[in-house]
């Protein structure tokens, strides 16, 4: 009966994952390997293709002027001296804003997923906030892995493939921001998790009882323990020949924290460097006093 309960939990979290995350790993890998019947993604590999691809980039969340009128320079950056703000500089900032817009939407998706974890909404509300504040960027990075291969990443719900070399070529600090995620993802992808494994792993990350400032750790650890058992069983079933996969996966949680710390520092640096950079209030909330 205990194993049956753990399997039921696994199914429940997998269903919640499918409901809340629009681009699954199965779909992303199919796109990357050209196995969907659909049109191949639009490839962005230089400034020209970025400009063309801007029309496709899905910016449905941030209510910025430039998203409705992609040809116009964004109002938020109009105060930047024109001599300093060349065409590709504006493009880079607009692209950065699109990434923000997708991140805000991702926070909403992760929040809804967290709410579907049995027992999560019964935790102290302040602890729910803390778990999300510390968990969402880690989750976003994990969710990027299925979209990436060594050469680039899918963006805009799989409609666009952006090359790693192009991302690397962006001016500082943009150009440095994605490389650690590629390095992590290429290694993470060798574990060959499926979407069901991913769902459980995400729940384990959210239910981390060691986040700073938690008021009531015990119930969080209890919930996490159950999900961990479910994950362990799930991995034994889905990867019977992969020895120590459970342990290898848990080790990834340490790498993730370092990536998030560096990511937040890069954003803070960017905020200082780009005079009029607009950082969405929700992302500000999450990153303020994070690490």
């Amino acid at each position: 009966p205990e194993a049956a309960d753990l399997r039921a939990l696994s199914r429940h979290l997998y269903e919640a994952y499918l409901k809340n995350f629009p681009l699954t790993k199965a779909k992303a890998r199919a796109i990357l390997s050209g196995k969907t019947g659909d049109k191949a993604p639009f490839v962005i590999h230089d400034m020209k293709s970025l400009m063309e691809g801007e029309q496709i980039i899905n910016c449905r969340q941030i209510p910025c002027q430039e998203h409705q009128q992609p040809q116009q320079p964004p109002a938020a950056f109009a105060a930047v001296g024109h001599a300093d703000c060349n065409m590709s500089g504006e493009l880079e900032l607009r692209f950065f804003n699109s990434c923000q817009s997708r991140s805000v939407e991702a926070v909403r998706e992760v929040t809804e997923f967290a709410k579907s974890i049995p027992g999560f909404v019964n935790l102290d509300l302040n602890d729910q906030v803390t778990l999300l504040k510390y968990g969402v960027i880690e989750i976003m990075i994990i969710m990027m892995a299925p979209l990436m291969n060594k050469d680039g990443t899918l963006i805009s719900y799989g409609q666009i493939f952006m090359t790693r070399e192009f991302l690397k070529s962006l001016r500082k600090p943009f150009g440095e921001m994605m490389e650690p995620k590629f390095e992590f993802s290429v290694k993470f992808n060798t574990l060959e998790l499926d979407d069901n494994d991913m769902a459980l792993f995400l729940a384990v990350i959210i239910l981390s009882g060691d986040r700073p400032g938690l008021l009531n750790v015990k119930p969080i650890e209890c919930l996490q323990e159950t999900v961990l058992h479910s994950l362990e069983l799930q991995l034994k079933i889905s990867h019977p020949d992969s020895l120590q996969l459970f342990a290898k996966l848990l080790q990834k949680m340490t790498d993730l924290r370092q990536i998030v710390t560096n990511h937040v520092h890069s954003i803070q640096l960017l905020k200082k460097r780009e005079v009029d950079m607009f950082l969405h209030p929700l992302l500000q909330e999450i990153m303020k006093d994070l690490y």
Partner: peptide, 20 residues
């Protein structure tokens, strides 16, 4: 609570961040 107003709101209802 004030520091994480939007996260609180997202947790308590389905408000889209764009409306906040």
């Amino acid at each position: 609570k004030e520091k994480h107003k939007i996260l609180h709101q997202l947790l308590q209802n389905n408000t889209s961040p764009v409306d906040l």
